[in-house]
Amino acid sequence: MKESVLPARRPARPGGWFHYLANPGRFQKLARPALPWLAAASLGFTVAGLAWGYWFAPADWQQGDAARIMYAHVPAAWVAMAGYAALALCSFVSLVWRHPLADIAAEEIGPVGAGFTGICLVSGALWGRPMWGAYWVWDARLTSVLILFFLYLGHITLIRAFDNKAHAYRAAAILALAGAVNLPVIVFSVQWWNTLHQGNSVSLAGSRIYPTMLYPLLVSALGFYLTFVTLVVARMSAAIAERKTAALLRAAAERAP
């Protein structure tokens, strides 16, 4: 009886959850109460990880204190790449299924991801100068991360460049998807080519970082990931509210002559 009155409250198919959640109204209902908790967790883990790395982690055997830059640089790099993967996924969903929430997410991920990529580049330069002897070199790892930064900037510009939003979303989604081929290049650049940048310290095969230095890195990385999620969810929630406000004001203007 009840089921026939209310339209499907719970998705029946396994893939149905995706469609169920990909609705701006439901997103708002979930996001608004979750945001304070997300923000508190982001702040807690980020501050704990960075403070642990800056003050308490041991100095490195070859790099000394300069290795402390790792606790900011490596999480920023991971989030920059994961953020781009999320952007590419949203673009894919947008192109194939035309979900409005995927477009909103893509528009809001761009600036946040570009910011983390910028942090990765700046902290890397500040690490390279004392350790390598140069702020910047044109090796494959550094160049591919710089390309990632420009892909973010291109996406930010393109998605805001059209008067027709549908065209903007489609053009930006194609750019984001095409740029996704850069992600494996970044990860494997240190293995495929001779680079000045050292190899990956943490991979699926394991870690080459001693536990007393790995734990603060993982706490910091968790904090950075949570910060990214919090920032994107807050910006998406604000974007949805802005759209609703604009729609309400338009409707009010049409009612009143």
Binding site: L50, I69, A72
Partner: peptide
């Protein structure tokens, strides 16, 4: 090295 560490953390 500390000015570089401080700058990196400061920017972040």
């Amino acid at each position: 090295v500390w000015p570089f560490i401080n700058a990196a953390y400061g920017v972040t």
